[in-house]
């Protein structure tokens, strides 16, 4: 366990009753990184995050978080970690200032009122500090929760689907804030199932059924998944989509408006399909670089959601 890792866990396993929610999970989060934690609903992301900050005790496995043992030193971890829950979990019947003040007291912060006032000013909520937190809109609640999680100046932020149900503008602002914090040296572990958020991360781990399927630097993921992707445009795109889905060598067809992304594990077989199609001269084919998005669609299709939604629908092929 090296000093430049904010989180390092090995073999984390958690059962709820007879149901195994997290199964021998390993993860290394380098200090200062934005680490994306992806997976469908019910895949065990929240449970894993809770084990990392000492809110749940794993059945087996070991790990450290900021140099503290996740089982024996949960109390110290809590002092140095900022945790933002999936559901808004500040007090809706307290005002914005009262909520921040309460959190500040929980961490026994010095200069409490100055720090709370500064946080309110950063949020742009100074004028609304006396408003009940429950009356804030979804985006504002998210920003308040982030401010609360950051109030005591933690070195590590654990964000559990922080932007679920928030409008695109608020999500963009939220990610600007996360990048700003990261630039200041804060390590961020963020779970999400938004593709556009995944591409903003330095590292990514993908989890399904409580098992880690893949992890590594964001740029390496497409290579790790091993997909080759072609981009197609042209007339009767729906007809082409239907035909390609039945064509051997094509593992996945994802549609983006009038454009298809056609992917396959077997590069040569896919090239053969492309050559055949190109010979008809109807569509424009371009080989696509990167392909992180296709890689995730492929992973999701391979590991359908335990709750039976998204996954398969987003997958296509």
């Amino acid at each position: 366990m090296t000093a430049d890792l904010a989180i390092s866990v090995r073999g984390l396993t958690k059962d709820f009753g007879s149901h195994r929610v997290v199964d021998h999970f390993d993860m290394d989060v380098p200090k200062g990184a934005i680490y994306g934690f992806l997976g469908p609903n019910g895949s065990g992301k929240t449970t894993t995050i809770r084990m990392m900050c000492g809110l749940l005790t794993p059945e087996s496995g070991t790990g450290q978080c900021l140099g503290f043992d996740i089982i024996r030193e949960a109390q110290q971890i809590k002092e140095h970690v900022g945790y933002m829950t999936q559901k808004f979990s500040l007090y809706e019947d307290l005002t914005i200032r009262e909520n921040l003040d309460f959190i500040a007291r929980m961490y026994r912060m010095k200069d409490r009122s100055a720090k709370v006032s500064a946080a309110l000013a950063d949020l742009g909520l100074t004028n609304r500090a006396g408003q009940l937190a429950g009356t804030l809109s979804g985006g504002w609640k998210q920003r308040l929760a982030l401010a609360a999680a950051m109030l005591h100046g933690p070195q590590l932020l654990l964000l559990d689907e922080p932007t679920a149900g928030v409008d695109p503008k608020a999500r963009r602002d939220f990610w600007d804030e996360i990048r700003r914090l990261s630039a200041q040296g804060v390590t961020v572990l963020v779970s999400t199932h938004y593709m556009d958020e995944a591409v903003q991360c330095d590292f990514i781990a993908y989890i399904a059924y409580g098992k880690k399927l893949i992890s590594g630097p964001a740029g390496d993921i497409p290579a790790l998944v091993g997909l080759t992707t072609w981009r197609v445009e042209g007339p009767d795109i729906s007809g082409l989509e239907a035909r390609l889905r039945k064509t051997p060598g094509v593992d996945q067809v994802a549609r983006f408006g009038a454009v298809l992304h056609v992917s396959g594990k077997d590069k040569a077989a896919l090239a053969q399909v492309v050559a055949t199609e190109r010979a008809q001269g109807l569509h424009q084919w371009h080989e696509q670089a990167g392909g992180l998005e296709e890689a995730f669609i492929y992973l999701m299709a391979g590991a359908p959601d335990t709750l039976g939604n998204d996954g398969a629908a987003a997958g296509g092929a």
Binding site: L55, V81, T85, K87, S89, E92, M106, R108
Partner: peptide, 13 residues
């Protein structure tokens, strides 16, 4: 029930 316990016990209280 409201989820605030999670925030509460994530602090050193």
């Amino acid at each position: 029930e409201k989820g605030t316990m999670e925030t509460l016990i994530a602090t050193p209280v």
